[in-house]
């Protein structure tokens, strides 16, 4: 009944905006959008275009006008075993951190959507890390991860041997994932809680009356209705993880043994530490292509209506 009423309301709102009139609103809409579009163009499109152009050039110094070198920079990138290591590390990072953060965020969002004593306190603990600047959180975690730091002190007190964390090639990347998830999970939970609260309560009431259990409700009502929010969260999380930089730059500089050499850090290192702007631009171009491909696939998979 409620659903029908909603559908009716939507139909009515369509009737309010006949086609001719909606076309006449376009110029005004454009004017309102202009500041954002101009900013997007100046801050995103132009730099991306410049990076792509620069990836086909080379110069011994930034002060000397570059020459066109075709695909030379890409040949250097793909001819180097180090770059494949960078792509591999970035791949492992993405396929681990994104599902982990999303699963944890969904779980916490479901928990926060319930009513129980101390809910406010739990919410505060979940959302508090979001307010911490990434650099500050990184430095604090860096101290916590030290071989003689507080985490190992707790482990040893519990009779567990101390761990090398950031000093071990097999643990460093996962230590970075934990650090980033400490901030990330709370952040993505915010969106999912909003998405959950948008799901009409009546759907659950109807399903409960029909004898559906918690799991059935979750599978048949929550997840399908959360799909749009989830699509956004998955795509945004993937993008933000692909350009993850701060913890690596502050704590590991890509080590040990290149085990945390994520593509964004490698690009930064080539461009600003080593001063090879054009090689860095080639890497940015590869990164843009990866981002476009991954997000296009994700939108297609998650955005499709049943």
């Amino acid at each position: 009944m409620t659903l029908l009423a909603r559908k009716g309301a939507q139909g009515a709102s369509h009737k309010l905006a006949p086609r001719g009139r909606s076309r006449s609103l376009w110029p005004i809409a454009l004017i309102f959008l202009a500041p954002t579009l101009i900013l997007l163009f100046v801050l995103r499109v132009i730099p991306a275009g410049e990076a792509v152009m620069s990836s086909f050039q080379n110069s011994p110094s930034r002060l000397i006008a570059p020459e066109w070198v075709g695909l030379e920079n890409f040949a250097v990138l793909f001819g180097s075993a180090d770059f494949y290591q960078v792509l591999g590390v970035t791949g492992i990072f993405i396929v681990t951190i994104v599902p982990f953060q999303i699963a944890a965020a969904v779980f916490i969002a479901l928990l926060l959507n319930e009513r129980f004593p101390g809910l406010g306190l739990v919410r505060t603990f979940v959302f508090l890390p979001v307010a911490a600047p990434a650099a500050v959180a990184t430095v604090i975690w860096g101290i916590a991860f030290q071989p003689r730091g507080p985490i190992n002190a707790i482990l040893e007190a519990a009779g567990i041997p101390s761990q090398p964390f950031l000093t071990s090639p097999s643990q460093a990347l996962f230590s970075i994932i934990i650090l980033m998830s400490w901030i990330g999970i709370g952040y993505w939970t915010l969106f999912l809680v909003a998405g959950l609260q948008d799901i009409p309560e009546e759907l659950y009431e109807a399903a409960t009356l029909d004898g559906a259990g918690w799991w059935q409700c979750f599978w048949s009502i929550t997840l399908p209705n959360l799909r749009r929010t989830l699509a956004f969260v998955v795509v945004a999380n993937t993008v933000s993880s692909l350009i993850a930089f701060v913890p690596v730059a502050i704590l590991t500089r890509g080590g040990p043994a290149d085990s945390t050499r994520l593509i964004m850090f490698d690009t930064y290192n080539n461009t600003f530490v080593l001063g090879d702007v054009h090689l860095g631009s080639a890497e940015v171009t590869v990164l843009i292509l990866i981002l476009i491909t991954v997000t296009a696939i994700q939108f297609r998979l998650l955005g499709k209506e049943k």
Binding site: P164, T167, G255, P256, A257, V273
Partner: peptide, 17 residues
């Protein structure tokens, strides 16, 4: 500049075992 960066990372790696 390149030497300082590459050797610095190598020193870190050796330090870490």
């Amino acid at each position: 500049t390149q030497m300082g960066d590459v050797t610095g990372r190598a020193f870190d790696d050796i330090r870490n075992g």
